[in-house]
Computed example of a mutant assay.
Amino acid sequence: MTHLLGRQDCVESLRRDVIDLQAAVLDVFSRTGPVRVPSWKFPDKVSCNVDLVQLLQEYDYTEGEPEFNQHSHIVLLELVIDR
């Protein structure tokens, strides 16, 4: 499975997953209000205050940067868990 780490299609798929999960979370929040619990990825922040737009801009696939893409893959997977 390590051969998939950092591949463009994997990174893009994880980005879409994070966006879809966030949309579902916001839908629930619109009915219940925000849930104030610590973020799994950023325990010093409340999960509803994590700036996903900034994180998605920062951790995107970059052509010719295999190590960064592997790091982005892992961060995006952690954001899926965090959501």
Rank of each mutant, 00 (worst) to 15 (best):
E58Q: 15
R31T: 14
L21E: 05
D82R: 04
R7N: 08
E58A: 06
G33N: 03
V46T: 09
R36G: 02
P43S: 06
R31E: 11
R16F: 02
L21V: 01
V50F: 05
M1G: 13
D17L: 14
L77K: 06
Y59S: 00
A23G: 02
Q57P: 00
R31H: 12
F29D: 13
D17W: 03
R15F: 01
V53Q: 14
L55A: 05
R83Q: 10
K45C: 07
D60H: 09
S39I: 07
S47F: 03
L79I: 08
L21D: 07
Y61A: 01
E67P: 03
D44R: 13
I81A: 03
P66T: 07
P66W: 07
F68G: 02
L4S: 12
C10W: 06
Y59N: 00
H73T: 05
H73W: 13
L21I: 09
C10P: 00
M1N: 08
V53S: 15
T62F: 06
D44K: 09
R15K: 12
V25T: 07
T2R: 12
F68Y: 11
D27N: 07
V50T: 05
G33F: 03
Y61Q: 05
C10H: 11
M1Y: 09
E67D: 12
A24P: 00
R83P: 02
D82V: 04
K41N: 09
G33C: 04
I81S: 02
G64W: 08
N49P: 00
L4H: 09
D9A: 14
W40N: 04
T32R: 14
E63M: 11
V28L: 13
L14M: 05
C10R: 15
P66S: 07
Y59A: 01
H71F: 12
D44C: 06
V18W: 03
E65M: 13
L77S: 14
T2H: 10
I74P: 00
D82M: 01
L79F: 00
H3A: 07
V75C: 02
Q8Y: 06
I19K: 14
S30I: 05
N49E: 15
I19R: 15
C10L: 14
C10G: 14
V46N: 06
E63T: 12
V50N: 03
R36F: 03
V75R: 02
S39A: 10
R7E: 12
H73N: 13
S13D: 12
V37K: 15
Y59D: 01
G33S: 03
F68L: 04
V80C: 15
E78K: 12
I81V: 08
T32A: 09
L77G: 10
S39Y: 07
L4V: 07
V46A: 04
Q8T: 11
V35D: 04
F29S: 08
N49D: 15
V53L: 10
R16W: 05
